[in-house]
Nucleic acid binder design. Sequence first.
RNA 1: GCGAUCGUAGCUCAGUUGGUUAGAGCGCCGGUUUGUGGUACCGGAGGUCGGGAGUUCAAGCCUCCUCGGUCGCCCCA
Length: 424
Amino acid sequence: MKTPQAIRGTQDIFGAEAEAFAHVVSVFERVRKLYRFTRIEMPVFEKTEVFSRSLGETTDVVSKEMYSFEDRGGDSLTLRPEFTAGIARAYLTNGWQQHAPLKVATHGPLFRYERPQKGRYRQFHQIDAEIIGAAEPLADVELLVMADQILKELGVSYGVTLLLNTLGDAPSRDAWRAALVEYFRDHRAGLSEDSQERLERNPLRILDSKDPRDKPVVADAPKIDDYLSSEAQDFFGKVTQGLDAASVDYVRAPALVRGLDYYRHTAFEFVTDRLGAQGTVLGGGRYDGLMESLGGPPTPAVGWAAGIERLVMLLGEVQSVEPAVAILPESDDLEAEAAAIASELRRNGVNCWTAFRQNPKKRGAKAGLDGIFTKLFVQQPDAHGKDLNFTSVGSLEAAELYHQIAKILGEVRFGNISHFRATE
RNA sequence: GCGAUCGUAGCUCAGUUGGUUAGAGCGCCGGUUUGUGGUACCGGAGGUCGGGAGUUCAAGCCUCCUCGGUCGCCCCA
């Protein structure tokens, strides 16, 4: 019988990488509490219209990039491709307006029907933070400062830059867009084939084209700054002032855009060149127009999300530094005794490594592969009633484990006790 | 949807211009070592070389198809 294969674009995460994954989530959880963001848990799937209506009927996104299927009742359902639309739906259907301005945070798996490549998977994972019901620029600032703190606490901020832009309010955005379309039409011949195509479907996207032929045309394209209303200028000014006041560095990126119409004002991405073609580590912006597309009242909101896999790639090794002791029975008839000792130590908070077979020498070697050089040998009581020996090699911290263990198990039981300094 | 590239043992990989019975390390299994200072020693099992077709006296190696991985394009909410 042939073993079924995993679904394309899914991953089985193991060992050190899984620890790094958990580390990202725990840092996120700790920091979001500092900012008093409420934890929420969301369904992994929704009616397809939750996503299709929020995305508009635009682009390949709805038609090709979503994991959609029919359930037994004939309803079209979709595995969530993002958090925001589901959160917006929940905000409306649960009457969370009463909590506005509402700060929420969540994390978990998302699904997009794409070809996998570096840092892109069909099932991927994000951390996510949103502020709903706040039109004030300080909401944007707080979210950005929180994002910055998370990246710094994860230690991944090296080589990561915050790109910041404003799309203005609706009139500013519309005027800029019209000017861009006119400009690109005039320079159509100089554009790549892909961008000529974009001109019809999603002209703003020409601005971040990767094709070298587009670069000179894009460089001279109309700038949003020339189309901003005074209100929009004022809003953006308050965002940048807030970032300056909080000492968060950023780079103005006038070509940073969002394809969807409901985005207004602030748009931002933390980017790096260390992740191949997928440079965005964390991205977000203000989506004041989204609630209405889901049939709700006009509701200002702003949020961001970050890919956990990408953060893990930037993180490198996450060492578990918790001291641990390997419990090694000297003979088969001491297995049960050794297991009992391990249980007692663990109930008292001592991290114990155990195996289930092979002689103590082999087990010790195996523990060493797991980075554990502190050993507790369990033997038959000798003439003096000593039935435990303790050895450690390495940090002083490991040696101090002895005192903790002796206190729990009784010092009188120990025969040989030795600690050796690690030699390079 | 398109393109490039890779696919040999459970894992990571060698394998010459096509030429006997396809190798190593790790892991696994067995044994030795009666041991406690940093991961010992010896032995063994394990492969339809991703799958299929073709070229050839002969294919892991060349050609085509197919499946899968990786990376990139498109897309990126």
